[in-house]
Amino acid sequence: MELLHEAKVDNVFIGDSEATVKTLKYINEYLQNHIITILCNLLSEYKHLYNKEINIRPDQPENIIRLLLPRKPNVGIRHNIVRHRGSIVMQNRLAARYSGEVYLVKHDLPFEARSNVIGFVSPEYVNLFDQIDADIRIKLIPIN
C-alpha cells in the first residue's frame, strides 16, 4: 500500500509465496477501488459499521482519522478510556454537535470524557493509517 499510495508506482510484485487469498483480495480492492480493508473488533452495538465503504473527511487533524459517517445526537457516555493507537472512537453527547462522530486513533491520546472507545483495529492493520487520506475509502471487517 505504501508503494502504491506514497511512491505512486504502477505495479507491485509480491514475492511472498505464502500470501493468503484474502490478503491478495484486499490489495486488489485497493488497486481497483481505492478501498483499504481494515480488520477490527467493534462492540456489539456498533457491528452495523462492518462491511460498509466509509469515506474519509477531507479535514484531518494529526492524531485521528475522521470518518464521514452521519452524526447521532445524544450518544450515551460509556467506555471512555485512554484512546490508544488503533482505537475506534465515537464521540458521545458531551461532545455536543459532534455526538456520534467516529474516528480512528493514529497516536495514543489521553482519557477524554467526550470520547467512547467502541472498538480496536487489529495491530497488523494499524500501520495502514499512514496511507489513509480523503481520497481513500475504508471498509471495517470483523477479525473472525
Rank of each mutant, 00 (worst) to 15 (best):
N74H: 08
N33S: 13
H34M: 04
S17H: 04
G86M: 04
L43T: 07
V9D: 09
T20R: 10
L43M: 05
N33L: 05
I77V: 00
D133A: 06
E112T: 13
K106L: 03
R78Q: 08
R66I: 12
P73M: 03
V121A: 06
L42E: 05
G119Y: 06
I81E: 10
Y103N: 14
Y103M: 11
H79E: 11
A19K: 14
G119C: 12
Y103D: 11
S115K: 07
R114P: 01
E18F: 04
D133L: 03
Y30A: 10
H34E: 09
I38A: 05
I138C: 08
A95E: 00
L3V: 04
F13H: 10
M1D: 10
I81F: 00
G86I: 03
V105L: 05
G76N: 00
G119L: 10
R137L: 03
L3M: 10
R57A: 07
I81Q: 09
P110K: 12
R78C: 00
R114A: 06
I64C: 04
E29S: 14
R93T: 00
I64G: 01
V82R: 11
L69G: 04
Y125R: 09
L24C: 10
F129Q: 07
E6W: 04
Y103F: 15
E62V: 09
R137P: 05
D133Y: 02
H84D: 04
Q91F: 02
I77S: 00
F111M: 14
G15A: 10
E101Q: 13
L128N: 10
E62S: 11
I143Y: 06
P61C: 02
V12Y: 09
I136C: 15
R114F: 00
R57Q: 06
Q91T: 07
L104D: 09
V75C: 07
S99Y: 01
